[in-house]
Simulated assay, not measured.
Amino acid sequence: MLRERATRLQAGRRGGGTVSVIRVGTRSSALALAQTTTVANRIANSSGSEVQIVPIVTHGDTSTDSLSSLGGTGVFASALREALLNDECDLIVHSLKDLPTDAYPGLSLGATPKRADARDVLCARSGFTLGTLPEGARVGTGSPRRVAQLLERRPDLTVVDIRGNIDTRLGRVVEGDLDAVVLAAAGLGRLGRLDAVKSELLELSAWPTAPGQGALGIEVRSGQLDRVLASALQAINHVSTEAVVSAERLVLARLEAGCAAPIGATAVLDTGLFFLTATVYSPDGTRKITSSHAATPDSHSAPHLHDAAQDVSERVATDLLAGGAAEFAPLKVTT
């Protein structure tokens, strides 16, 4: 039904008719639909237009292979981007941690709403924490970064590669197949599941998460925004979030080409300073290198924050490379 309606709307657009519906493309998972619905409602309120959600199934949603074998979490973005370029929708909503840093011809980021909690959560049976899990406990994750962090802290754990939605992963803990799983707090919060088997929120100072985690990115066709949609995107864009996640992703862009490398990054704005810390791990968690830098933006306006993001990300990436990160982590260094 949604696809048929989108096709009719597309024909109207190409025929030169005035269309008041804004079509928002998204993955079809429960989490993607939940976070996209929030964005769609805000766009509707800001624009006064009707907003239609267009679910799109991606290869990453249907394949049971590990994310690393599929080429990283960017596998979720490609189908959405092609749908946008094919005029099946007017914008698409990504989890920014899943969005490749390489530019995609014809598309650009139109807005970055305010970030949710960027932390990871250990969801364990019997209230265990990472420190109290029994020796040899089975902990599930599909993230190379989380694998490395788990093995760094607890080399005695058995880390199990898993796929599936949040309910599927939590179900494996409830059923006893796994002792714990590591999930993103933002995803649990958006689904109203933060209290599900939760035992420990992992603080960013000791457990940095993926660049962009907790933030959403709204991608649009470059140079093709009408006035109403452009105004709505400007209204929901959060300048501080845009700046800090840009700094995190710029480190990722300098160090590697995909989203699956074992890298954690955290940028924050605090008392007029722009802080960025990033850590690169070896896949087995036995080695890591960390760099931190700060900048003082002239103001919290978008141009000055953008300059600060560029500055700190360049210095952090340079430190990581000089410290030998590329020698022990699967990075593809860019120049």
Results as ranks from 00 to 15, higher is better:
67 L>C: 07
69 S>L: 10
72 G>E: 01
73 T>F: 14
74 G>H: 12
74 G>K: 14
75 V>D: 05
75 V>E: 09
75 V>Q: 09
76 F>L: 15
77 A>V: 08
77 A>I: 07
78 S>A: 14
78 S>T: 12
79 A>N: 11
79 A>P: 09
80 L>N: 13
81 R>L: 09
82 E>M: 11
82 E>G: 06
82 E>P: 06
82 E>K: 12
85 L>E: 03
86 N>D: 15
87 D>S: 13
87 D>K: 13
88 E>N: 14
89 C>M: 05
90 D>T: 03
90 D>W: 03
91 L>M: 13
91 L>I: 06
93 V>S: 02
94 H>Q: 09
94 H>D: 10
96 L>H: 04
96 L>K: 09
97 K>C: 14
98 D>G: 05
100 P>Y: 07
101 T>P: 04
101 T>D: 08
101 T>S: 15
102 D>E: 13
103 A>L: 06
103 A>H: 10
103 A>C: 07
105 P>T: 07
105 P>N: 12
106 G>N: 01
106 G>F: 02
106 G>A: 03
107 L>F: 07
107 L>W: 04
107 L>M: 07
107 L>P: 04
108 S>I: 13
110 G>F: 05
110 G>I: 07
111 A>F: 03
111 A>D: 03
112 T>D: 05
112 T>V: 15
113 P>H: 04
113 P>N: 11
114 K>E: 11
114 K>F: 02
115 R>H: 01
116 A>V: 00
117 D>A: 02
117 D>M: 02
118 A>R: 01
118 A>P: 11
118 A>Y: 00
118 A>G: 01
119 R>S: 06
119 R>E: 07
120 D>L: 08
120 D>F: 04
120 D>H: 10
120 D>W: 03
120 D>Y: 04
121 V>N: 02
121 V>A: 07
121 V>P: 02
122 L>M: 04
122 L>A: 07
123 C>N: 12
124 A>S: 12
127 G>S: 11
127 G>Y: 10
127 G>H: 08
128 F>Q: 14
129 T>Y: 13
130 L>H: 04
131 G>Y: 08
